[in-house]
Design a protein around this nucleic acid. Structure first.
Length: 365
DNA sequence: GACGGAAACG
DNA sequence: CGTTTCCGTC
């Protein structure tokens, strides 16, 4: 019943819209046109209102090395752990100008994602959740959903908790499916519904051993899907220097290329600017974006085929990235509430300390 | 801590 | 609609 006189706190809260990522000086491996994926901000509907959503935010955080002490990928594909709930909540609060945000509330919002299947809880592990990228992708590319439905995507590779969930909208996508979908030449075209599925793929699909949602066990570290990739200077974490999504038509990927777990990179694919599938690769996936957003699409340079310098792990490998990220964090902390009216409930001025990071070694939890 | 109902808000 | 706020329950 407590409803503090919040009256007309119409604080526009020009929270600086702090796109976490300011485009400072982008390294050479950065293509101008390759801005943050629209899809990350455009869930599906509400054309125009691109209020950041919690899962976007989480993804953002996860993608920035600066916050690895606060939230980080861990465990299986899409699994992440909130190492510092208070901090994450605080950051979220800042972003939304909700000074009283806390983990309890944030987690409630997170819990709402369960039904939406955007997120899932990793039971047993504290503060650990798991992204359901299949859903995330679908949410952003409804067309794919349609396509999948049309073909009656037979692949069900969700051993996780969803396995038993006969959800009508349980669109379990496997990386393979995604690739297939993304490879399709114009999804937007009614008549151009490319051969999304072929008999041969069927086999492959079922054959895919992916730790998508529920392969327990893999205790190894899982690198984040390079979904949002481009923001950090470190390009995608594709240690294997190989993009599953652009790998030709559908070659049975050689075992050597099959890491313990690899993740799809729908984004990259959708942007279709990665290592061109080259011959046989087939159609570019670029149209996808156009298909969905269309119209006002920030025209992607047709020749977007720009230089898709993926991480050239080769020697460096993922470990290199992992190990070398300890350097001093960037200064683009989003820890300032500048813009947020301090009015609100007339509480503390919300000093927002510069957050002394790095101090946490015993956060093991 | 984690869950989910309920009400309210923008 | 996506939370935010609050809360009872396990």
């Amino acid at each position: 019943m407590r409803k503090p006189s919040k009256a007309g706190s119409t604080m526009d809260c020009s929270c600086v819209s702090d796109l976490l990522f300011a485009p400072p000086a982008l390294p050479a491996l950065w293509t101008p046109g390759f801005a943050f994926p629209d899809w990350a901000y455009k869930p599906e509907s509400s054309p125009g209102s691109r209020q950041i959503q919690l899962w976007h935010f989480i993804l953002e955080l996860l993608q920035k090395e600066e916050y690895q002490g606060v939230i980080a990928w861990q465990g299986d594909y899409g699994e992440f752990v909130i190492k510092d709930p208070d901090e994450v909540a605080r950051l979220w609060g800042i972003r939304k100008c909700k000074p009283h945000m806390n983990y309890d509330k944030l987690s409630r919002a997170l819990r709402y994602y369960y039904n939406k299947r955007i997120l899932h809880k990793t039971k047993g592990k504290r503060f650990t959740y798991k992204f359901n990228f299949s859903k995330v992708v679908l949410v952003n590319y409804p067309l794919l959903d349609v396509a999948a439905a049309t073909t009656g995507s037979p692949l069900l590779l969700t051993p996780g908790p969803f396995a038993g969930a006969p959800g009508p909208d349980a669109p379990p996508l496997t990386p393979e499916t995604l690739q297939t979908l993304f490879s399709a030449p114009r999804l937007g075209e009614p008549g151009a519904r490319a051969p999304l599925f072929t008999p041969e793929m069927d086999k492959l699909r079922l054959d895919s051993p992916f730790p998508f949602l529920g392969s327990g066990g893999a205790t190894g570290y899982s690198k984040p899907p390079g979904l949002l990739g481009p923001y950090s200077r470190a390009f995608p974490e594709y240690p294997w220097n190989f993009n599953p999504y652009l790998a030709g038509p559908f070659p049975k990927l050689p075992p050597s290329l099959y890491p313990p777990h690899f993740y799809p990179n729908p984004l990259a694919s959708s942007l279709g600017h990665l290592p061109s599938t080259g011959a046989g690769g087939g159609p570019t996936a670029t149209p996808l974006l156009a298909a969905t957003g269309d119209s006002l699409g920030p025209e992607r340079p047709s020749g977007l085929a720009a230089a898709p310098r993926l991480a050239l792990p080769g020697a460096g490998g993922p470990e290199a990235a992992l190990g070398g990220k300890e350097d001093s964090d960037s200064e683009l902390e989003i820890t300032d509430v500048s813009g947020c009216s301090s009015d609100s409930e007339g509480e503390d001025g919300l000093p927002v300390p510069p957050k002394a990071k790095a101090g946490k070694g015993g956060l093991g939890s």
